[in-house]
Simulated assay, not measured.
Amino acid sequence: MKGNFPLSKKNEYNAIEKLAIIAEQYQVSYHQVYQWVKKYKEHGPDDLRSTKLSS
């Protein structure tokens, strides 16, 4: 089941922290990782396989 549930402050902090860690690991900006997550949520994994490297 898919849904958008409001995050508690603790969960929101954890989500932000995880995105920051991913950004550091892949040497991209936090914004880029956020855009990847947004794209995945809106269009699924196939949309991430586009030939364009950034959005």
Rank of each mutant, 00 (worst) to 15 (best):
I21Q: 05
P6W: 01
H31C: 08
S50P: 02
E17L: 12
A23V: 04
E24R: 14
M1E: 12
S55A: 14
S29R: 08
Q27P: 01
G44M: 08
K52H: 05
M1Q: 13
P45E: 11
G3S: 10
G3M: 09
S55D: 07
K38Y: 05
Q35V: 08
A20T: 04
H43D: 11
G44P: 02
L48T: 04
K18C: 05
E17F: 04
K9I: 15
A23P: 00
L19N: 01
S54P: 02
K2H: 15
T51V: 13
K38M: 14
G3W: 01
V28L: 09
K52E: 05
L53C: 13
T51H: 14
E42Y: 04
S50H: 05
Q32D: 05
N4L: 06
N14Q: 15
V28Q: 02
E17R: 15
V37T: 08
Q35G: 02
A23Q: 01
N4F: 07
L7G: 03
Y13G: 06
V37E: 03
N4Y: 09
K10R: 15
Y34N: 03
L19M: 12
A23M: 03
K39L: 11
Y13N: 06
Q32P: 01
L7P: 00
I16P: 01
T51D: 08
L19E: 00
Y13F: 10
T51K: 09
S54Q: 15
Y26L: 12
I21C: 05
D47S: 08
K38R: 15
